[in-house]
Design a protein around this nucleic acid. Structure first.
Lengths: 341, 341
DNA sequence: TAAATTAACGAAAACGCTGCCGGATCTAAT
DNA sequence: ATTAGATCCGGCAGCGTTTTCGTTAATTTA
């Protein structure tokens, strides 16, 4: 509640409201001298413009919305960091919404956003989003919308992603070259294109090297951590235990570590693993974890930059940008070849 | 840009604007039948109320601001998670601001917040904040303000913190009981009360057990990761190397791991370490890291709950809540006693 | 010198919504 | 029958800005 408004400022200066407004917005209609007086008085009276009045009038909120599944996640935290950096530089505010991987939340969040609270939206889908109706309606409402990482396949929209197929392929091939014959894939969701792309890379790598694709080795994980742990346990306790794991998401790799620790399974001797991950401590784990590391910060940065180009109408009418960044495969102990001797 | 507004709705219904508004807000002045008609038409015409007009009129934004040093940090990510949960339940939106541990950013963020964009502010100070003038002015402006974790000592304000002194004491005592004789303390900032409280706990534990407090063992770290690494290196390479480290913050403990890995120092044999941390992978590190783990999610939850109590009951003038939650000390390998034999 | 231009400012109308009134109709109480 | 009280709805005045359009005085041009 900033108490002083334009009216009071104008009264104190003996000017009209409109003149003060113009002076503060540096209009050519106001003399330099008056501008100086106004600015001085404004700081002296600690004037802060009312953002709602301004937004109402100008139909601009100077705010963007960010919709993500979760925040306690290294990837999304880094992405938000990148987004915030761009937003701050542009003088924009950032509203954050968490869907908690729940489509119902995603839909209701989008409905809120339709109210015009934000000038643009950055979004990463939640794992159980199938229908894109809510996304289409948001897009059709005219508000700039950019997806990052978890993007919808069914609609035409600007996106910033990584080379998921190639990464899945390379990761799997790396496991094969380290001697794995039975490689399991831990999938986040069969609805998400990134998950499927990574899995396709996995399958194609298997095929290329003459290994069979076995459905029982492709584990569709859920949002219930306990249940995922039990899935992993049964996988690793089965008679035909895999000798390699390709995890499409960090959280599942950590679960694998917990399970192997509990079971006394030795990584990489009895089981090798590589995972998508942005863990800062990947190299400090026991054993250090081989990762495909996405440029999370840059993804946020680029997605935000793209969004602002759309907001500022610098991008032409019906042009749709699709940016793909490269992930890095970092080999560590967890997928190291064991010399049998 | 929601295109339909109350005026159009009213026209389509043959009602007045105010009646439609009241119907949508479920006023007792409107008949049940009319309400039903209005709601139906509203959904049919895809009406979304303009949040700015509403905020301008009601002088409520249904938004809270969260100001934190960084987001790519397990503690703050978890705290935000808790905050968001409460905010969502209350129907509030969350604006996030990052200061990047830079006081200048903090000051300018607070200035923005003074504009009345939010109904309340949750805040955790940045490491180099000394003067609290900007915070006082925010508080004096009448907007509810709650600090969590990193709180200002010089001003009277509601806070949610943890038992930092006791945690520092217990952590240090634990190292002593594990056989450490020379324990270093890695401090985040000599401006922050939490850092100082943790350090005071450390010093008192030393005194209690008859160990000297040596200034050269108290390392004031900076915001420059590279420089911190070099500080840690010189500490560990000195002739009188410490045999224990109490790290007041997760990031510095990770740096210690990197340095010991590079130097070939063995934890816990040659060096023991315990650190404040919310790492999910603490038990998977090599060796597993002993931690003081703050209830970060609960901190966010409680801070938000406290804030909403203030927002909703403005009448409760001069009461100042100070909530202290307990951290958990979790002993793991990194601080394990070595049996000399 | 008259006309045209420019500079500097003010008046007023929105932006979309809420909330205080006041008014009309209808039922219930005296 | 008259009054009192519900019930249901509309009018209107803002909330604080921005922006268009006037208006006046000063300056320039023909």
């Amino acid at each position: 509640m900033s108490n002083t408004n334009l009216k009071q400022l104008a009264a104190a200066l003996g000017l009209s409201i409109s003149s003060v407004s113009k002076a503060l917005r540096d209009s050519y209609e106001i003399s330099a001298e008056t501008k100086k007086r106004v600015v001085e008085m404004a700081t002296r009276m600690n004037y802060q413009p009312n953002p709602f009045a301004s937004s109402l009038r100008r139909k601009k909120s100077a705010t963007i919305g960010v919709v993500i599944p979760e925040i306690a996640n290294n990837f999304f935290a880094l992405a938000i960091d990148g987004i915030q950096m761009v937003a701050e530089q542009k003088g924009y505010h950032v509203l954050t919404y968490l869907t908690h991987e729940n489509n119902t939340n995603e839909v209701s969040t989008v409905r809120h956003l339709l109210g015009g609270r934000v000038d643009g939206v950055l979004m990463s889908l939640c794992r159980d989003t199938q229908s894109v109706d809510h996304l289409s309606s948001l897009q059709e409402s005219g508000i700039p919308l950019v997806f990052f990482d978890r993007v919808p396949e069914q609609m035409s929209c600007p996106t910033v992603t990584t080379d998921d197929y190639e990464s899945g392929f390379r990761a799997t091939e790396h496991l094969i070259q380290s001697g794995c014959k039975r490689i399991a894939c831990l999938s986040l969701s069969h609805y998400l294109s990134i998950s499927n792309k990574r899995m396709n890379g996995y399958m194609d790598a298997l095929k290329k090297h003459g290994l069979p694709v076995e459905n029982e080795l492709i584990i569709q994980c859920t949002n219930d951590n306990e249940y995922n742990l039990s899935l992993i346990k049964t996988l690793l306790k089965g008679r035909k235990r895999p000798d390699g794991i390709f995890s499409t998401v960090e959280k599942l790799a950590i679960s694998v570590y917990y399970v192997t620790q509990e079971m006394g399974l030795e990584i990489p001797k009895q089981l090798k693993i590589i995972s998508f991950s942005n863990l800062r401590t990947a190299s400090l784990l026991n054993p250090s974890l081989s990762t495909i590391t996405q440029p999370a910060f840059e993804i946020g940065l680029e997605a935000a930059a793209l969004l602002f180009r759309m907001i500022e109408k610098k991008t032409f009418g019906n042009r749709i940008d699709k940016l793909e960044l490269k992930s890095a495969l970092i080999e560590r102990k967890s997928s190291e070849r064991i010399n049998k001797n």
